[in-house]
Amino acid sequence: MARIIVVTSGKGGVGKTTTSAAISMGLAKKGHKTVVIDFDVGLRNLDLIMGCERRVVYDIINVINGEAALNQALIRDKNCNLLSILPASQTRNKDALTQDGVEKILEELSKEFKYIVCDSPAGIETGAHLAMYFADDAFVVTNPEVSSVRDSDRMLGILASKSRRAERGEEPIKEYLLLSRYSPERVKSGEMLSLNDVQEILSLHLLGVIPESKSVLTSSNAGTPVILDEKSDAGQAYADIVARYLGENKPQRFIEDKTGFFRKLFGGR
C-alpha cells in the first residue's frame, strides 16, 4: 500500500507546489517510487515547476472520464525515473473532479507507487477537499505571517473533521509543519513571527524550516525542483525534510541568524 501525502495550506502562494515538487523528487531520489498529482483543476502549475509542461497530453480529468488510461496520463520525470507526474486539467469545469474518480485513481496508483503526493490547490473548495480526503499524512506549508498561520489553523480543523480517516473513525491524519519563506534575520529584529511563535499557535510536529531563498525562483524559472539545487539553502532544507520524514535524525537548520558581524554592522543584505 502506498502512503498518501497531501501538501496543503489553505492560503495561496505560500509554497505548496514548490514543496510538492521538491519532496516528491526527494522521495524518488531516495529510491522510493513516487507519483505527484496536481489537484488544481483549471489552474495547473505543477507541470511548469517540474519542467514537463510540454509533455502533457492527458490529465487527471481525462482519466476520470475514461478518455485516457492512467498510464497514458502519467509523465515520467526527466531527472529521475522513479518519479511520475499526473497533471491537472485546464478545464474550467471543477465538477469534473469527483470523489469516486479520485478514489479509483489513488487505488490504482497505490499498487505501483510507494508514495503519492497530492498537491492541493489553495482554498477549501472541491479540489482542496479531494486532495486531503484520502490522505495519510498532511504537510501543512505555512509562512511566518498572520493570514497564513490563520488559514493553516482552519485547514487543521478541516483535516481533523472532513477526511476519510475522520469519517471512518480511524487513526487521524498525521500532520506536519513546514515553515517556509523564513528569514532568521527578520525574526531576530522582531519583524517576523518566529518558529516558536508559530509552533505555540499551531502546535504541530515540525518537519522543517525552509529559508527565504533566491534559488526557489531561479529553480522555478528553469523548471527544476529546488531540491536538485543541492548547493542552495532551500534545496538542502527540503532534503533534510525528506530525510526526517523517512525517519532519519537530522538536526534543524536555517533557524538561526547566520549574518556575519560586519554585514550586520553596516546593514548589508
Binding site: 505571517e145 489553523d153 522582531g190 513571527l193 505555540e200 550586520k264
Partner: peptide
Amino acid sequence: MSLLDYFRTSKTSSASLAKERLQILVA
C-alpha cells in the same frame, strides 16, 4: 539590522503584535 538601527528606540516589535492578534483570533 544596522548599527544605526541599534541606537534607534525599539518600539514593541510587530512580530509580538502579530502573535498576540493570532492567539486571540485562533482561539
